[in-house]
Amino acid sequence: MAHRVDHEYDYLFKIVLIGDSGVGKSNILSRFTRNEFCLESKSTIGVEFATRTLQVEGKTVKAQIWDTAGQERYRAITSAYYRGAVGALLVYDITKRQTFDNVQRWLRELREHADSNIVVMMAGNKSDLNHLRAVSEVDGHGLAEKEGLSFLETSALEATNIEKAFQTILTEIYHIMCKKALAAQEAAATTKLPGQGTTINVADASGNTKKGCCST
């Protein structure tokens, strides 16, 4: 859903936050969009939505972020939320091994429901709780490398790497999109320039082209 819209922003990118219940997705969202952290936030039911506009390489980008519930029951409904998403932040909790082990499950989920070219970053959250650590940073890097994801350890509480995580995702999406738009322009002179509501396919950097346009 990379709309090119006039006035307020140049691009609108939809990003989903996924990961097990309790890993801190909602706080990552509130830290990024409102610079707030709440130790006592409620559990997310269904989906929550927030936006933030920021600069990416001189362009104004509006990030539309969908925070989803961790529990399986809500994923049936949430599969619709993956539609049009060009980025995903897959979060685990460095103090809970199980949430790291479930990363594979979430990747499978993304493969099933999201566009195959979606940009995925993995975040090991709660890095402020180093004394309770159950997943080493090396393990995190290892898995990210194996799965071809970018990776950062984050702390929504201390506001560590939250900004950087989103900047990284958005920049990567932007690069891919520019490349793709250029290719599209060159390839089809007959095709109109992308206007509002036109969906541009975000090509995978690794050259995965098996899936076509993600228009919805």
Binding site: S21, G22, C38, E40, S41, K42, S43, Q71
Partner: peptide, 18 residues
Amino acid sequence: EQIDRDLQRTHPEMKFFS
């Protein structure tokens, strides 16, 4: 475990629950 996590987050503004 899931229930415990959610109970911690039930009306977190109220000492009665949290």
